[in-house]
């Protein structure tokens, strides 16, 4: 009976944590609405979460695009279809790799930083001090960060995809001599604005929302010790990465599966 009881306890604890996360989200959404009149606070966070994540996103996007150019060319040239290289690179990036990889990078760079920051603010009583100054940390701290995360993610994904397409072009045209006009026009003809680009943007908005939610929840509920903050940061990266990959499957099935 002991393993069964342990399983029961684990399930109950997981459900309780999920419930707490949903309740926290409701409060955070309320905080986001209330902080809207002070949009400068959101802009500050947009800088911390978005601008500071740009470098890693752009460099990664360039390399991923270059690898796609290489791999795509090697396969397509077997069928004399190298003229489709632009289309292949763009579709891969806009539909999947752009939103997913930039979200994984965002979780690692910005998500962990958010959890660490909020967790340490809690451990050093900064959140309690705000409460005692009659300032609601949900509005002053959590709200702007949630909004900034949701806004930053699609912008970063777009940059990742754009730079990736450029990387593919550098390899396809620069190294293998694929005609520049063919590279760009195949992309222009084959990539649909709504079916491909918009769906990719929707994915990245969802990922941005989930990552920021997880990161803020973990930070806000971290045990206020160095070990507790460290564990919370790890949980943020693990949980949000799994959520991105699992969520990507569900979203892809919904968007491209003809549902």
């Amino acid at each position: 009976m002991k393993p069964l009881a342990a399983l029961g306890r684990w399930v109950l604890a997981a459900l309780a944590r999920l419930g707490a996360a949903v309740l926290f989200l409701l409060r955070a959404l309320g905080g986001s609405v209330r902080v809207l009149p002070r949009f400068s606070l959101v802009l500050e966070q947009l800088y911390c979460l978005g601008v500071l994540t740009m470098l890693i996103t752009v460099v990664s996007g360039l390399f991923v695009g270059m690898v796609l150019g290489l791999q795509g060319y090697y396969q397509l040239v077997n069928f004399s279809a190298e003229s489709s290289l632009g289309l292949v690179v763009a579709l891969f990036l806009v539909r999947e790799l752009g939103p997913v990889l930039s979200a994984l990078l965002f979780a690692g760079r910005a998500g962990s930083a958010l959890t660490g920051e909020i967790g340490l603010m809690k451990a050093t009583e900064q959140l309690s001090a705000m409460e005692m100054m009659a300032v609601d940390p949900i509005v002053r701290i959590i709200g702007p960060r949630l909004l900034a995360g949701v806004l930053a993610m699609p912008l970063l994904a777009a940059m990742f995809s754009a730079v990736g397409v450029l990387g593919g072009y550098l390899i396809g045209h620069g190294q293998f001599g694929v005609d520049a006009g063919v590279y760009w026009s195949s992309m222009q003809n084959g990539v649909e604005l709504f079916a491909d680009v918009l769906n990719g943007i929707i994915k990245s908005v969802v990922f941005g929302f989930v990552i920021t939610w997880v990161a803020l929840f973990e930070g806000y509920h971290a045990t206020p010790t160095s070990e507790g903050v460290s564990r919370a940061t790890t949980r943020t990266v693990v949980t949000s990465s799994l959520a991105i990959l699992g969520g990507d499957y569900i979203l892809t099935a919904l968007m491209f599966g003809g549902w």
Binding site: T124, Q126, A129, M132
Partner: peptide
């Protein structure tokens, strides 16, 4: 309130 850790931002 003055906190033990000062709790400065």
């Amino acid at each position: 309130m003055l906190f033990q850790s000062s709790a400065l931002l």
